[in-house]
Amino acid sequence: MSRKVLLIEDEPNIAEAIRFLLTREGWQVQTHGDGADALQVIRAANPDLVILDVMLPGKSGMDILRDLREQDGMQSLPVLMLTARGQSRDREMAENAGVSRFMTKPFSNAEVLTAVRDLHAQATRL
């Protein structure tokens, strides 16, 4: 069973680190670095999990999430959101937008892996 994660992150180094971690966990990792066409990429990739940065060029992660949740069949797609801004307001906004899990950079690798595992487990249980 191939698990597919779509990583939307504009910082190449962070993307590479996450790819490294998740690949070793058995995920198939697809990365994308731009916010503007992120929605189409998500639909096209049809991933099991989305890891979404907030500050993206073109369109913010918040807007992408909000729009995503309005689309058919996308309400229950697990979305792990990462932000470097670290304001409590951001967490609220993300939760209102329908985020599955919200994490602040810098994160520990273990945290990311735990979050990804939890989200996948929840999704498959359903």
Partner: peptide, 25 residues
């Protein structure tokens, strides 16, 4: 402040992630 935070956290994230990778892998 939010911008500065973002600019500081972004490289720190990479540094932390890769140093953990090098430590744990």
């Amino acid at each position: 402040l939010s911008q500065v935070s973002h600019e500081l956290r972004t490289p720190m994230t990479s540094i932390r992630a890769f140093s953990e990778i090098m430590r744990d892998t």
